[in-house]
Design a binder for these strands. Structure first.
Length: 216
DNA sequence: ACCCAGGGTCATA
DNA sequence: TATGACCATGGG
């Protein structure tokens, strides 16, 4: 007998505590982080954001004004720096064209997602990171950890579409933004601290023996 | 020395 | 629509 989606949340929260995500002081920093962390360890993203801050460039207008190569060098530690330089500038161009964060905040949630998905370099997960963590809207973010954990728990097959999984989690939890915020954060923290660092973690592999999830 | 990270785009069939 | 190549640094 495996745990339900709700029960997994209870256990993650009990063992890891409140995460109070996303790391970042401002909505804009959160959005930048969402793009830079694509398929990249967060520790590397922090170095790139530090570079941007040091050059006083953590600002849409400043980023757009930079030369591509100049920005790429600041993003270097976060990997894929040429592509991310292009993506980050495309995103900042879009943000400025929208009229800034305040204007984006006027979108209804689904319209906001769709608008973000049109931006070069912004896919479903990045869009939902922004919608949830920068704008506090109730969308459940699906990432590789989510697929890994819940497929190993036997709750999903793992090859469902992004939208199918988002629909499943949102329909099951019927939660508010604060719950989705916390749950996704817990999944990532658990994935980082347990699933990868401790390969013997049994949330994923041996369910009933995981010291973080399965023991009461 | 190898593996893979809090993905997304693009070309090809 | 469904795969595969590609992007690239840094920590384990």
């Amino acid at each position: 007998m495996s745990y339900s989606i709700k029960q997994v949340y209870q256990r993650l929260h009990k063992h890891h505590g409140a995460q109070d995500w996303w790391p970042g002081d401002t909505p804009f920093e959160i959005m930048v982080g969402a793009i830079l962390t694509q398929n990249t360890a967060w520790s590397n993203v922090e170095k790139a954001i530090t570079n941007l801050k040091a050059s006083d460039c953590l600002d849409a207008a400043a980023i757009v004004a930079l030369q591509h190569d100049e920005l790429a060098q600041m993003l270097r530690p976060s990997g894929y720096f040429n592509i991310k330089s292009k993506r980050l500038q495309a995103f900042c161009e879009w943000l400025l064209a929208q009229g800034g964060e305040q204007s984006v905040a006027e979108y209804e949630t689904e319209a906001m997602r769709q608008a973000l998905l049109q931006v070069y370099g912004v896919g479903p997960e990045t869009a939902d990171d922004i919608v949830l963590y920068a704008f506090h809207r109730p969308v459940f973010v699906i990432d590789a950890y989510t697929r890994r954990i819940f497929s190993r728990l036997g709750i999903i097959s793992g090859d469902e579409s992004y939208e199918a999984l988002r629909g499943l989690f949102e329909a099951t939890l019927k939660g508010k933004a604060a719950l989705y915020n916390e749950y996704h954060a817990l999944i990532v923290i658990h994935g980082k601290e347990v699933c990868r660092v401790k390969p013997q973690c049994h949330v994923c592999a041996l369910k009933d023996k995981c010291s973080y999830i399965s023991k009461p």
